[in-house]
């Protein structure tokens, strides 16, 4: 086998341009964690099933383990580290997750939050059933989902424009 092919790329993550040289076979999830130190994106199964590595690409929720890092060039990436509006203020979904104890070990939480950010953008007034379907691709082995759903309903109300 010849030397693995590498590419020099610029990733735009949470509003910042970051340059890396990466083997072409490296996934975006691995590049975020190991090259950029953004370890908030968690890797569970690395095959797209568990949902823990879900990030936002141009505002759409996608699996960071199912994209190559080289494919992310030219796109705006948002990870869990970029969700809060400032170091002193959490995103409304994060606030609601805290209030409802919607996390225990926290492994699935980054993927749930990014998935739900896109979902609430598309469906601002969801039913409980719609929320359960939206997070059907995110496995949580601690909470049993009830508190996650409750937090999402509350966050949806907080995010809706007030009449």
């Amino acid at each position: 086998m010849t030397e693995p092919q590498t590419r020099h790329i610029t990733l735009r993550v949470n509003g910042q341009a970051r340059e890396i040289t990466t083997p072409v076979r490296k996934t975006l999830a691995d590049a975020l964690r190991t090259d950029l130190g953004l370890t908030g994106t968690h890797l569970g199964c690395e095959t797209g099933l568990c949902g823990a590595c879900t990030i936002l690409v141009d505002g759409r929720a996608m699996r960071a383990c199912l994209m190559l890092a080289v494919q992310a060039e030219g796109h705006a990436i948002t990870t869990i580290e970029g969700l809060a509006p400032s170091p002193s203020e959490l995103h409304p979904l994060q606030q609601a997750f805290c209030r409802h104890h919607a996390l225990q070990c926290g492994f699935c939480t980054p993927g749930l939050l990014t998935t739900l950010v896109e979902f609430l953008h598309d469906v601002p007034n969801p039913s409980e059933a719609e929320i359960r379907e939206a997070i059907s691709g995110n496995l949580c082995r601690c909470t049993g989902y009830d508190t996650i759903v409750a937090a999402t309903l509350e966050a949806a109300a907080m995010l809706r424009p007030q009449p």
Binding site: M62, R63, T115, G137
Partner: peptide, 9 residues
């Protein structure tokens, strides 16, 4: 078809 973050890609 699969889940939301799969359908986007």
């Amino acid at each position: 078809i699969a889940h939301l973050p799969i359908r986007t890609r």
